[in-house]
C-alpha cells in the first residue's frame, strides 16, 4: 500500500464528509478562524489581570474557575471544568496533560507545540524542576512544585504571581504582561 501524503488524506476525508452532508464547510471555516485568530491566551490574561485587581473576583475564580471565567464571557469547548491553581512565593504550579493535550481552550486557545510534545508530557511529571529550568524558569530549591495533570474532567489553569513594581497598574495595563506560558506555569510574569 502506498503511503499517501497526510495533507491529501485530510483533504480526501474533508471532501467525503462534505459530500455526505456531515460537515458544513462554512461552519468548519468559522471554527478554524476562531481558533486561529480570536480565542487565545489574551482571554486568560484578562482573567488573571482581573483576579489581581479584584480580590472578590479572585476568590470566586479559585472557588469555581468555570463560573468565574464565564463571567467574562469565556466558555466553550474544552472549558467545561476549569480549576484555577494559584502560584505563591512558596508554591509553583505547572500544568501538563500526560495522556494527550487537554488544555483550557477558552482561556488559552489551542496548546502550543511544547505542551503536546511527548518529552514534556513525560518529563515534567518526573523532573519538573529540571524541565522548568530548561524552559528558562529557575525556581529556588525551597519552592515547592505542584504538577497538575489535566484530563477531560478537569482543565487546570495557573494564576501566576503578580510581579513587583506593578502596584499602581490597572487591569488594562496588567493584562499584556501575562503570557500564555505563565498561565501554564512554565514562566514567570515579568513587569
Amino acid at each position: 500500500m502506498t503511503r499517501v501524503p497526510i495533507a491529501l488524506r485530510t483533504e480526501a476525508l474533508e471532501q467525503l464528509l462534505v459530500e455526505r452532508g456531515l460537515v458544513d464547510p462554512k461552519v468548519m471555516d468559522g471554527f478554524i478562524k476562531m481558533y486561529e485568530t480570536d480565542v487565545g491566551p489574551l482571554n486568560g490574561a484578562k482573567v488573571v489581570a482581573k483576579a489581581w485587581t479584584d480580590p472578590e473576583y479572585k476568590a470566586r475564580l479559585l472557588e469555581n474557575g468555570t463560573a468565574a471565567v464565564a463571567e467574562l464571557g469565556f466558555r466553550g469547548p474544552q472549558g467545561e471544568h476549569i480549576v484555577v491553581v494559584e502560584n505563591t512565593p512558596d508554591v509553583h504550579n505547572v500544568v501538563v496533560c500526560t495522556l494527550c493535550s487537554c488544555y483550557p481552550w477558552p482561556l488559552l486557545g489551542l496548546p502550543p507545540a511544547w505542551y503536546k510534545d511527548p518529552a514534556y508530557r513525560a518529563r515534567v511529571v518526573k523532573e519538573p524542576r529540571t524541565v522548568l529550568a530548561e524552559m528558562g524558569l529557575q525556581l529556588a530549591d525551597d519552592v515547592q512544585i505542584q504538577v497538575w495533570d489535566s484530563s477531560s474532567e478537569v482543565r487546570y489553569f495557573v494564576l501566576p504571581e503578580r510581579p513587583a513594581g506593578t502596584e499602581g497598574f490597572t487591569e488594562e495595563q496588567l493584562a499584556p504582561l501575562v503570557t500564555r506560558d505563565t498561565m501554564a506555569g512554565v514562566a514567570r510574569v515579568m513587569a
Binding site: 497526510i6 495533507a7 485530510t10 483533504e11 476525508l13 474533508e14 464528509l17 456531515l22 460537515v23 458544513d24 461552519v27 468548519m28 471555516d29 471554527f31 478554524i32 481558533y35 486561529e36 485568530t37 480570536d38 480565542v39 487565545g40 491566551p41 489574551l42 490574561a45 484578562k46 469547548p77 486557545g109 489551542l110 502550543p112 507545540a113 488594562e172 493584562a175 499584556p176 503570557t179 500564555r180 506560558d181
Partner: peptide
C-alpha cells in the same frame, strides 16, 4: 492587547492541520 499570536507561534504549522482540527470540531 494584541491577539493570540503575540504570545507565540502560529496555532497550526501547516494548512492540513487546521483542516483536521476543523473537521473534528465541526462533526
Amino acid at each position: 492587547a494584541a491577539p493570540p499570536r503575540s504570545n507565540g507561534e502560529l496555532v497550526f504549522a501547516e494548512p492540513w492541520e487546521s483542516r483536521a482540527f476543523g473537521l473534528a470540531m465541526t462533526l
